[in-house]
């Protein structure tokens, strides 16, 4: 077994950093100022924290969704589409049934929509061998255009110029736990943390979690151990979709309070990064989601310095690469 030399990895890290600095110089920003602005903007002020935690919330639930599928050996690239349909279903339900009951129904509708959106990919994978990456990408496109059509048509708020739904009534929204003071916290954050912890505990302590992970680790061994691999794949994909759909519903009920065309800024894809950073430990989803939330919030904060917002994508991508270099170091195939 050979290990990549440690200096090589540090060289890579420095290279990645230099790349970011080069971009900053290119857009005529002062690197040092930019970095300190990012950190302050994300974690240095109450407002920054509020934004960071807000960005973190959907990433927690979506991260758990992607993580769950990953443990069953499935790449749920479709989390973004499931999130989008979940959000629309949540808004539509909450608009139809106002009040706390509607809110609960809306969360359920989000789950259902996400699960149904993932189900075909699970079935195709389990029984026809069609790769889930391809099918979920297709489902993402369908989700995107279908929701745009719906929000431009039957669900559109006629009082608005753009394609958007009405805003949810206050009593339909997820409650804010700490209203006053600098830290305004929505219950959604705790819901997200609870889901991550719940998924982690379920995977590690239950027999069904064990069987799901056996399926992901070695299908033939799972089959020989009495696990129905096909059923497990369908269930894992559907459960992953369910959580992703829930993330969408939670996001609209807690923060956005409405649905509009091209709703997702790519949370579903960021969640892939979150799950990959967490690697084998579900509880690492929490710091990973926090990191992603902070980078996202930090880059929004410095956009006033003239740094393009797209920088967050560059930073996230490089972060994953650097982590990957360190993480997979030991896994160089041995002789």
């Amino acid at each position: 077994m050979k290990k990549t030399p440690i200096w090589g990895m540090w060289l890579f890290t420095v290279g990645a950093f230099a790349f970011v600095v080069a971009i900053l110089v290119l857009v005529k920003a002062v690197p040092l100022e930019t970095f300190s602005g990012m950190v302050t903007g994300a974690l240095g002020t109450p407002g920054g924290w509020r934004g960071t935690l807000r960005e973190m919330t959907p990433l927690l639930i979506l991260g758990a969704a992607v993580f769950l599928a990953l443990k069953a050996g499935l790449f749920n690239i479709g989390a973004d589409g499931q999130y989008t349909v979940g959000a629309l279903a949540g808004v539509a339900t909450a608009l139809a049934v106002p009040g706390p009951l509607g809110m609960v129904l809306a969360l359920g509708a989000g789950c259902l929509a996400g699960a149904l959106w993932a189900l075909p990919a699970g079935l195709i994978k389990a029984y026809k061998g069609g790769h889930e990456v391809i099918t979920t990408i297709m489902m993402n496109n369908i989700a995107r255009f279908l929701t745009v059509a719906l929000v431009a048509g039957p669900l559109r708020n006629p009082a608005q110029e753009s394609a958007t739904t009405k805003i949810l009534a206050k009593e339909s929204q997820l409650p804010i736990l700490i209203q006053d003071g600098p830290f305004r916290l929505n219950i959604a954050l705790f819901l997200g943390l609870g889901i991550v912890i719940g998924v982690g505990i379920w995977l590690r302590t239950t027999v069904s979690g064990y069987e799901l992970m056996a399926t992901g680790a070695n299908k033939r061994a799972a089959e020989a151990s009495g696990v129905s691999v096909a059923q497990t794949l369908v269930k894992a994909m559907t459960a992953s979709g369910l959580l992703a759909g829930l993330a969408g519903a939670v996001h609209v009920l807690a923060y956005e309070n409405r649905f509009y065309a091209d709703f997702s800024p790519g949370f579903g894809f960021d969640a892939l990064g979150v799950a990959l950073l967490a690697a084998s430990n579900p509880f690492l989803l929490i710091p990973a989601a926090l990191l992603f939330g902070a980078i996202s919030q930090g880059t929004s904060a410095i956009s006033i310095l003239g740094v393009p917002k797209g920088l967050s994508g560059v930073l996230l991508g490089l972060t994953i690469l650097v982590f990957a270099v360190f993480r997979y170091r030991k896994e160089t195939p041995h002789a």
Partner: peptide, 17 residues
Amino acid sequence: AEGVIEEWSLAENASLG
């Protein structure tokens, strides 16, 4: 391919099946 999951611990493999 069928008897063990190599990345898993011995304890985890003990209950496989």
